[in-house]
């Protein structure tokens, strides 16, 4: 099947029910998208599907069709993605960093949709992304910074 990922077409020979997460990581070697739970509870696997934040651990490859996939490896190519990454570094959000690909993808999708979110809107949009290191306070601050940038 053909998948459009970060602006490139990829021809992959995988089962229809194989989650996109494992197509990215194991077949295409794109390990920026992470495995955290496999049941869409933690958000570490978040990618964009036509700009919407989606949990790739439960997105079957066969369901993608012609929709465009964007991953953490390319999100910095968009103005908002780039601002989010810069804000993340300016506010020193990152501790272990393992959840942050998913956090950045979710935050970017939020800001594409809601350019100046309130704390309540941030909390609602980001509640699907777990951070065990507890960087939530700085994530909120970084999203506000990216929104103002």
């Amino acid at each position: 099947m053909k998948l459009s990922i970060n602006g490139q077409p990829h021809d992959v020979d995988v089962p229809e029910d194989m989650p996109v997460l494992w197509v990215l990581r194991d077949v295409l070697g794109m390990t920026g998208t992470k495995y955290g739970c496999g049941i869409a509870q933690c958000g570490a696997c978040t990618i964009h599907l036509d700009g919407q934040a989606v949990r790739s651990c439960m997105l079957p490859a066969g369901a993608v069709g012609t929709a465009v996939i964007t991953t953490i490896e390319a999100v910095g190519n968009s103005p908002i993605g780039s601002k989010v990454q810069k804000a993340w570094l300016d506010t020193e959000v990152v501790q272990c960093g393992y959840c942050q690909s998913g956090q950045i993808m979710a935050a970017t999708a939020l800001l594409e949709q809601t350019p100046k979110p309130t704390d309540t809107e941030i909390n609602a949009a980001m509640a699907g992304n777990i951070c065990r290191c507890g960087t939530y306070v700085r994530i909120r601050a970084a999203i506000h910074q990216a929104a103002e940038a």
Partner: peptide, 18 residues
């Protein structure tokens, strides 16, 4: 500024699992 964080915001940091 932390030295390990730039790679952690763009998907290039390699954890054991990667």
């Amino acid at each position: 500024k932390r030295l390990d964080t730039p790679a952690k915001v763009n998907g290039t940091a390699i954890y054991g699992i990667d």
